[in-house]
């Protein structure tokens, strides 16, 4: 079931087209990744979806509410965690959370209870009475996320939540994102970390120069750039002498010799390992490692965004 539906979203800053007629949807309860190089239009898109910026033209429906006409109604059910922490430096962590809850009309008792729960969840209980400006970057990030979810939003917009923070804090935040998903929260996530997106996103959209160039599940994106099934072999012996036999056994395959003891066999169909290893063994090539090579999301990202950037430049 679609909870966010965007059609022909467009944003012009003067003559500059920041977002160019993009359309996508987000299913209820999924983590939707929005990836793209710097200046691709990710934050502009978030700003338009959350009401911080006016679209130059589009249809946006969030939880069946027309977000272009009635953004204040939408803001009741969404949470926003911007790329830079935007809480109040003068106020302590607890007061910041209580204030954010008050903006959503929560009663005093309820907001204090929720603030304590969140400080505990984010391991910030001890820091709760310290001013926000005295927090480390990781702590600031965590408190900003806590502020974004204090009113139990149905949809959470996270703009680069783990950028610039230490590994432990980033892991903690990723775990919290997955926990939120388990509780049914829909998450719109932008990140620079492709491994992170690959690990936690259900579907991903790649945006380049304001246009969505690819959209799908992680597997769908990877399959779209796969040239074939690749088996990488590490061995002792001379691969050059068995190339002809290999091509006879696996018609259509290509062999790429990487070094004296390493080669790749690329085939359209999956390569059965046992006959391959037996053939090589019979020809005096002793294989001591064989592994299937799959493209990473980074490969997909570089290929797609690289190609698109070149095309746009031309």
């Amino acid at each position: 079931m679609e909870i966010v539906n965007v059609k022909n979203l467009k944003k012009l800053y003067g003559d500059f087209l920041a977002v160019d007629n993009i359309s996508f949807h987000i299913n209820k309860g999924e983590i939707f990744g929005f990836l793209g190089p710097n200046g691709a239009g990710k934050t502009s898109t978030i700003n338009m979806l959350t009401g911080l910026s006016r679209p130059s033209g589009s249809e946006i429906h969030i939880n069946s509410i027309d977000a272009v006409r009635d953004i204040k109604k939408v803001q009741r059910i969404i949470g926003i965690v911007p790329d830079e922490s935007n809480l109040y430096g003068e106020m302590n962590g607890f007061d910041n959370l209580c204030f954010c809850a008050a903006l959503y009309g929560m009663e005093k008792k309820e907001r204090e209870k929720k603030a304590k729960e969140l400080l505990n969840l984010f391991n910030l209980t001890e820091a709760g009475n310290r001013p926000f400006r005295a927090y480390s970057k990781g702590m600031k990030r965590k408190l900003t996320i806590a502020a974004g979810i204090i009113h139990n939003p149905k949809i959470l917009f996270l703009d680069e939540p783990t950028t610039g923070i230490d590994v432990e804090s980033a892991r903690h935040i990723r775990k919290l994102i997955l926990d939120l998903k388990d509780k049914g929260t829909t998450i719109f996530l932008t990140t620079h970390y492709l491994e992170e997106a690959q690990r936690i996103c259900d579907r991903i959209a790649l945006i380049v120069k304001g246009r969505i160039v690819k959209i799908g599940t992680v597997n769908e994106l990877m399959e779209s750039t796969m040239q074939g099934h690749i088996v990488q072999l590490t061995y002792q012996g001379r691969m050059e002498t068995v190339q002809k036999e290999l091509k006879e056994h696996f018609p259509g395959c290509t062999i790429k010799i990487l070094s004296n003891d390493s080669s790749q066999l690329i085939n359209k169909e999956p390569v059965p390992l046992f006959p391959l290893l037996q053939l090589l063994h019979n020809k005096g090539v002793s294989v001591y490692e064989a592994k299937e090579i799959k493209p990473t999301l980074e490969d997909v990202f570089v290929e797609i965004t690289g190609l698109e950037t070149d095309r746009a430049n031309k």
């Binding site: 204040k72 109604k73 009741r76 903006l103």
Partner: peptide
Amino acid sequence: DRLLLAPV
């Protein structure tokens, strides 16, 4: 921005 993003 936090105030602008609030349902107020």
